[in-house]
Computed example of a mutant assay.
Amino acid sequence: MNQVGILATLQARPGKEAEVEEFLRSAGPLVEAETGTTAWFAFRIGPATFGIFDTFQDEAGRNAHVNGEIAKALFAKADELFITHPEIKTVDIVVEKL
């Protein structure tokens, strides 16, 4: 069972919504290479609000993701694409169904 996760919310700059969506789509191959990431979802909450939710079996998997290529790419583009820095929350998973 997955024990931990990350929930990130992203607020796109006006006019950058399509670029944020494309950025998230382009992250797919990067997350596929992460053996410790068991599930990864990128989603849209509203016209300019996006989110990412990922799960991991343990803290080591989560730490590898936080220090991995997706996180580096996200923060490298943060000033260009987002109104504020991504809001990132770590979560403990209580129950899951995959």
Rank of each mutant, 00 (worst) to 15 (best):
N2V: 11
V4Q: 08
V4Y: 11
G5Q: 13
G5P: 02
A8C: 06
T9H: 07
Q11K: 14
R13K: 15
E21W: 08
E22Y: 06
F23T: 08
S26N: 14
S26I: 05
A27L: 13
L30N: 06
L30E: 09
E32M: 09
E32P: 00
A33Q: 15
E34R: 04
T35D: 13
T35F: 06
G36L: 06
T37I: 03
W40V: 03
W40L: 04
A42N: 09
I45T: 12
I45L: 14
I45S: 06
G46A: 15
P47K: 09
P47H: 10
T49L: 04
F50G: 00
F50P: 00
G51Y: 01
F53P: 01
F53A: 14
F53Y: 14
F56W: 10
F56Y: 13
E59L: 11
V66I: 10
N67W: 02
N67F: 01
G68R: 00
I70A: 09
K72N: 14
K72F: 04
A73Q: 13
L74K: 00
L74E: 01
F75I: 09
K77F: 04
A78K: 11
D79W: 03
E80C: 00
F82I: 06
F82H: 01
F82R: 04
I83F: 07
T84K: 15
H85G: 11
T90K: 12
V91D: 01
V91A: 15
D92F: 10
I93W: 00
V94I: 15
V95M: 08
